[in-house]
């Protein structure tokens, strides 16, 4: 049976993992390659590396990091952050990334998704969406790291991204992100009903039960989290054993 995927997300700045980590007593916890390998050894199914550096110099450092990750890691990994044109995608896939995630640039220029899918195939194109549930209950897409509201609704944009050739949707609920109170399961379920491509749940992971609910109630195909993994609050082997016990297919 196709396994539900568990995906740790690593923020990278100037080639170093940003958030402080308290992870398996790793001596080089700031090194994305060492951290990535440790997660892979723990049973992570995929990794996401997000470049939060904006400078040209930082971009070069990130590309070098991608090359080293590709040399060392034996599971698939996605890279994102600051991808604005096809040449960025070419550079990162050339460095060995398996997939790229696009966010703000795709909202500004949706044809970027068509271009990526056309040149490299849908399987490499992850459309990341940061969305916020507004007071009227509607889900609005935000860009620039959740700082700038757009006129797009989550469901409308996710569907358009799929039709343009995105291979997966990485949906982060801004209402849930950082709360550790669980994923946005209702919105996830609505996405799953509307779309025919895999959906990665993001934002809100705090306990093992939250992962179960994202899969069982939200029908997510994968769940992504950062701090609960980085700080060792939820060890991945323990999480997978728990999910298996709950009847969810995991590797």
């Amino acid at each position: 049976m196709l396994a539900k995927r568990i995906i740790p997300c690593l923020d990278v700045k100037d080639g170093q993992t940003v958030k402080g980590t308290n992870f398996v007593n790793l001596r080089h916890a700031g090194d994305p390659v060492a951290l990535g390998k440790a997660y892979s050894d723990q049973g992570a199914d995929e990794l996401v590396f997000l470049d939060i550096t904006a400078s040209v110099e930082g971009r070069r450092t990130f590309t070098e990091m991608v090359t080293r990750v590709a040399e060392q890691l034996n599971i698939p990994f996605t890279v994102g952050g600051g991808i604005s044109e096809l040449s960025d995608v070419d550079r990162l896939l050339g460095a060995g990334a398996d997939k790229v995630s696009v966010n703000s640039a795709a909202l500004r220029h949706p044809e970027l998704i068509d271009q990526i899918a056309g040149h490299f195939g849908s399987q490499v194109c992850v459309c990341a969406i940061d969305a916020h549930m507004e007071e009227d209950g509607s889900w609005r897409c935000y860009q620039n790291g959740g700082r700038v509201p757009t006129s797009r609704s989550l469901f409308e944009w996710a569907y358009e991204a799929q039709e343009r050739g995105a291979g997966e949707i990485l949906f982060t609920s801004m209402n849930h992100d950082g709360t550790k109170a669980g994923f946005a399961n209702e919105a996830l379920l609505k996405l799953a009903d509307k779309l025919s491509i895999p959906i990665i749940a993001s934002g809100g992971a705090g306990t093992q039960e939250h992962f179960r609910d994202a899969f069982a109630l939200g029908h997510a195909d994968a769940a992504l989290a950062a701090s609960v993994f980085h700080f060792g609050e939820i060890p991945i082997p323990k999480l997978k054993a728990y999910l298996k016990g709950e009847g969810i297919s995991v590797r």
Binding site: R5, D45, Q123, S196
Partner: peptide, 15 residues
């Protein structure tokens, strides 16, 4: 696919 949750491509870990 025969039903909605059988997504194509087949992407991920399987036995």
């Amino acid at each position: 696919p025969r039903q909605h949750d059988e997504k194509v491509p087949h992407m991920g870990w399987n036995q």
